[in-house]
Design a protein around this nucleic acid. Sequence first.
DNA 1: ACAGCCGTAGCAAGCGCTTTCTACGGAAGA
DNA 2: TCTTCCGTAGAAAGCGCTTGCTACGGCTGT
Lengths: 373, 373
Amino acid sequence: MTVTLADVAARARVSPATVSRVLNGNYPVAASTRERVLRAVDDLDYVLNGPASSLAAATSDLVGILVNDIADPFFGIMAGAAQTQIGGPGDGSGRAGGEKLAVICNTGGSPERELTYLTLLQRQRAAAVVLTGGAVENPEHQAAMAAKLAKLADAGTRIVFCGRPPLPEGDALVAALAFDNRGGGRRLTEHLISLGHRRIGYVAGPRERTTTRHRLEGHREALHAAGLGAPAAEGGAGGPGAGSGDQGADGDPLVVHGPYDRRSGYEATLELLRRAPDVTAIVAANDTVALGACAAVRDQGMRIPQDISVAGFDDLPFSVDAVPALTTVRLPLFEAGARAGRLAMGKENPPPGGIATIAAELMIRGSTAAPRG
Amino acid sequence: MTVTLADVAARARVSPATVSRVLNGNYPVAASTRERVLRAVDDLDYVLNGPASSLAAATSDLVGILVNDIADPFFGIMAGAAQTQIGGPGDGSGRAGGEKLAVICNTGGSPERELTYLTLLQRQRAAAVVLTGGAVENPEHQAAMAAKLAKLADAGTRIVFCGRPPLPEGDALVAALAFDNRGGGRRLTEHLISLGHRRIGYVAGPRERTTTRHRLEGHREALHAAGLGAPAAEGGAGGPGAGSGDQGADGDPLVVHGPYDRRSGYEATLELLRRAPDVTAIVAANDTVALGACAAVRDQGMRIPQDISVAGFDDLPFSVDAVPALTTVRLPLFEAGARAGRLAMGKENPPPGGIATIAAELMIRGSTAAPRG
DNA sequence: ACAGCCGTAGCAAGCGCTTTCTACGGAAGA
DNA sequence: TCTTCCGTAGAAAGCGCTTGCTACGGCTGT
C-alpha cells in the first residue's frame, strides 16, 4: 500500500542505499543517477518514513517549543517567531535542507505538564527544545527539570531558554535569552515616581514564578531607592508556608498576586482599591492584567489617567490601542523568539557565557500621568 | 549509553516482548511480572524510543494542529483548547494511556507552508491533523490539499477541520466544524441597519479566503435584504485578474481588503473615510482589524460611537476592554477547539454528515449606536 | 487420570531506513 | 602497459520496538 524506499529504488533501478543518499544529499551521487531517483520519487509520490529514518539515523527533525499559554499573545509571538526559524520553507530558499518540524507544547503553566512534554520530546529524540516564559520556582520541580534537561542534553538535544533565566545548575550546554524584567520593572516604577506618585499599587503575577518575582523586585527597588519602601520582604527563597491567599502575605498591602489574566487584573485591582483607596497608580504584572485593571478602575467611576494611572508590561500589540494607550515596558518578543529559534537550529552561536540579557524598553503613553494636584 | 527495552528486560529477568507489553498495556501480563518490569523501568530511568516504536507499530502519537498565525489569539485559543484534549496529562487521570503529542504548526497563511507541514506530518505518520482557520480559495491549492489529505486519510490519519468548511471533494473521512461566518456577518450588519445606518464601510480580510468571503457575503445579504445593496458582485469564484490592489476591485467602494491585522484595519479605514466621508459605520473583518479601525477613526478626530460606529468579529478577550467596548460576533473558539481535539482523538463521534455548523452570537456593546440624527 | 484450555511468557521476524565497508570501472601516473 | 586512486554504487548489518505465533504449566471437565 505505502511506497517505500525500496520501491523507489526498484523503479530507479538503483539500490535503496543510493536513494537514501540522494534524499539526504550527504554523499556523492552522479547527476544522472540522482535525476533518475528524483523522478522515481516523484512518479511514486514517495514520502519518507520519518520514524524509520529517525530510528536508523538516531536523530529526528522535531524541535519542541514549550509555552505556558499559547492563547496568550506573549507566548504566541515568541513561538511563532521561533517557528519562523525552524520549520517549513518560507525562508525563500524553497525546499531547503534544514527542514524541521516545530512542535509547540502548551504546558498551561503546570510543572507536571512541562515535565511530561519534556519526556515526550525526549522520547521523540527531539533535535532541540526551546523553553519560553517564566519558570516555576519550586526547588523540587527545578531539580527535576535540571535532571531531565541534562538527560536531554546528553542525548544530543539542544536546549535554549527564551525569556527565562537558566536553571541554577546551568550547564554550559544551554543557551539562554533572559528578559531584563527586573530592570524594566524598576524603570517603570521610577517613571511613576518621577511623575509624583507615592502610593502605588501592584498587581503581581502568580507567586513562585521567576517572571513575577523579577518584575516585582524591580518595582521594589525603585520604591526603596526613592525611600518609599514597604517592609522589605526581599531576598531568600520566599517565606515558607505563605498560604495560598491572594492577600499580601508578604506583608505588603499594596501588592496582590494572581494569575496572568484579565480577570485577575480586574479583581486584584478592586481589592487594591478597597485596601488602599489612596493609591494614585497601579502597576500590573503584564498588559493583559493591566486591561483588567483599567476596566476595574473605570467601573469604579475613576478616570485614567486623571484619577489614577495604570501601567502594564510586555507591550503586546493591543496595548497601543487601549484608551488611553497603555504605558508599558516593551519586550522584543518577536526578535527574542526568532533568535531562540536560530540558536535551537545551531544557526547562530550562543552568546558569550551562554546567557544574554534582553533589554526592556519603557514605553510611556497616555495611561500614566501626574497624580492630581 | 542509552537504555533500551532489552536492558530493562534483562534487569527484570523477562523478555523484551514482555516489557513492551507491560508498557503498552494491551496484553495480559501477570501482576507480579508487571511490577517487576515497572520497577526496572524506574531504576533504569528508561524512556521509550519513539521512532522505533512508531516504526514497529506503524503509528505515531503525534497530532498536528495547523494554524495561520499562532501570534493571533484567535488561533491560539483554538489550538490551546485542542491541545487540552490531546496532549499531556492534566485530564486528572495521571499518566493516562492516550498520551499524544500535539504539534502546533504555524503556516503563516501560506499555502505552500500548509502543504509542507502536511507532508512533514505525513512523514511522521501523524495520528491526526486538525486544520483551523479559513482556507485559501485557490483551485490549484485546494486540489493539492485534497490530494494530500486523501493520502493522509488513507494512511490512517484522522482529519478534522475546525472553523473552516470542508473541501469541496469532502470525503466521508473527515469531520468538520464550520463557524457560521455568513450568518454572523449578516446579523451584525442587520443590527447596524436596524440602528439606522445606511452607509456602512467594510474592512475585509484578505481575498481568496473562505472566512473573508463568508463574512462579507453575510454583510451583503443584510444590505440587499434592506435594499441597500451595492452592485451585486457575488457568486462565481471571484473576478479574474482583479490585481492586488486594496481598492475595491469588486466594484464596491465601500469595501477594502487587507490582511487580518491591526495595521491593515487602520489604513483601510483611512482609505474608506477618504472614499466615503459619509459612512456612519464601519464593520471590520475581525476584532484585531477593528482595533485598528477604531484608532484610525479616533485619529481623524471622530468619536465612537457618536460620530461613527465600529464593529468587529470573533469577540477575542480584549474586545470587551476596548473603549468603548466592541460590538462584535462571538465565536466559541475554545469550545470548538476542544471539540476538534476530541474528534481528532476519536473521543467523540463525528457530527451527522461529518459537518457541524457552529453558531455565532451577536454581542452588542458600546461601539455601535444610532447614527447622529 | 487424561485431554483440552486458558493464562502468560518467549521467539523471532520484521517495520523502513541509514551507513559502514566493500567492489567495481575508468582515469591518471609510472 | 600495469598499478593506484578516485568516484560511485551495492550489500548487508543493524537501529529499538511490536506482535503473531509457539510453548509451557496448571486447571477444569468428564
